[in-house]
Simulated assay, not measured.
Amino acid sequence: MKYSIGQFAKKTGVTVRTLRYYEEIGLLIPECTKTNRRFYCDSHLSSLQKIISLKYIGLSLEKIKKYGTCGKVFCFNDKSWRRKERNLQILLKRSTMRWQFLKNKKN
């Protein structure tokens, strides 16, 4: 399904301004039509969910962008990061289950 920025903001509870900022810094890039109209799709829901979860555990947007886009979200070796990684895994799993529940509920 395709969402305008307003629809996506309403669906996710994230402000339009925040979505535009994430696009500006290259963190969450919407797809574009041939007429340059931007839209978000269901895959962006997952990406946004990860961004929110990583912010929740204390990562800066800069680190999320650096490590999240290369697939190496946690490259750190100290114990506190490993503990945060475990907590993140649990949080992401719960968030994914919630997104799926909400998605199925609306359909």
Results as ranks from 00 to 15, higher is better:
residue 2 K to C: 01
residue 2 K to N: 11
residue 4 S to Y: 13
residue 4 S to L: 13
residue 4 S to G: 10
residue 4 S to A: 09
residue 5 I to A: 06
residue 5 I to F: 05
residue 6 G to A: 05
residue 7 Q to G: 12
residue 7 Q to N: 10
residue 8 F to P: 01
residue 8 F to T: 08
residue 9 A to K: 03
residue 9 A to C: 05
residue 10 K to R: 06
residue 10 K to L: 10
residue 10 K to N: 08
residue 10 K to T: 02
residue 11 K to F: 05
residue 11 K to L: 11
residue 12 T to M: 07
residue 14 V to E: 08
residue 19 L to R: 07
residue 20 R to Y: 00
residue 20 R to I: 01
residue 20 R to V: 01
residue 20 R to H: 08
residue 20 R to G: 00
residue 21 Y to R: 02
residue 22 Y to W: 09
residue 24 E to R: 02
residue 24 E to Y: 00
residue 24 E to T: 00
residue 26 G to A: 05
residue 26 G to S: 04
residue 28 L to Q: 12
residue 29 I to Y: 04
residue 30 P to I: 14
residue 31 E to L: 11
residue 31 E to H: 10
residue 31 E to A: 12
residue 31 E to C: 06
residue 32 C to E: 07
residue 35 T to I: 06
residue 37 R to F: 12
residue 38 R to V: 02
residue 38 R to G: 11
residue 39 F to W: 10
residue 40 Y to N: 11
residue 40 Y to A: 11
residue 41 C to P: 00
residue 41 C to R: 04
residue 41 C to Q: 09
residue 41 C to K: 08
residue 41 C to F: 00
residue 43 S to M: 11
residue 43 S to V: 14
residue 44 H to D: 11
residue 44 H to I: 08
residue 46 S to R: 13
residue 46 S to Q: 14
residue 47 S to H: 13
residue 48 L to Y: 08
residue 48 L to S: 07
residue 49 Q to T: 10
residue 49 Q to M: 15
residue 50 K to P: 03
residue 51 I to T: 07
residue 53 S to Y: 04
residue 53 S to P: 06
residue 56 Y to P: 04
residue 56 Y to F: 12
residue 57 I to T: 03
residue 58 G to D: 09
residue 58 G to V: 06
residue 58 G to Q: 10
residue 59 L to P: 06
residue 60 S to T: 15
residue 60 S to P: 04
residue 61 L to C: 06
residue 61 L to N: 04
residue 62 E to M: 03
residue 63 K to E: 15
residue 64 I to N: 06
residue 64 I to A: 06
residue 64 I to M: 07
residue 65 K to D: 07
residue 65 K to N: 10
residue 65 K to G: 14
residue 66 K to Q: 12
residue 67 Y to G: 02
residue 67 Y to M: 05
residue 68 G to A: 05
residue 68 G to F: 13
residue 69 T to Y: 09
residue 70 C to W: 02
residue 71 G to V: 08
residue 71 G to L: 07
residue 71 G to P: 03
residue 72 K to W: 01
residue 73 V to F: 15
residue 74 F to T: 05
residue 74 F to C: 10
residue 74 F to Y: 12
residue 75 C to A: 12
residue 76 F to A: 01
residue 77 N to C: 04
residue 78 D to T: 13
residue 78 D to V: 09
residue 81 W to K: 01
residue 81 W to G: 04
residue 81 W to N: 08
residue 82 R to F: 14
residue 83 R to P: 03
residue 83 R to A: 13
residue 85 E to K: 14
residue 85 E to R: 14
residue 85 E to M: 14
residue 85 E to H: 13
residue 85 E to W: 12
residue 86 R to A: 15
residue 87 N to Q: 14
residue 88 L to G: 08
residue 89 Q to A: 15
residue 91 L to H: 06
residue 93 K to G: 14
residue 93 K to C: 14
residue 93 K to P: 07
residue 94 R to D: 14
residue 94 R to A: 15
residue 94 R to K: 15
residue 96 T to K: 12
residue 96 T to N: 13
residue 96 T to A: 11
residue 97 M to G: 02
residue 98 R to D: 02
residue 101 F to R: 04
residue 101 F to M: 09
residue 102 L to H: 00
residue 102 L to K: 01
residue 103 K to F: 02
residue 104 N to I: 03
residue 104 N to S: 00
residue 105 K to E: 02
residue 107 N to G: 00
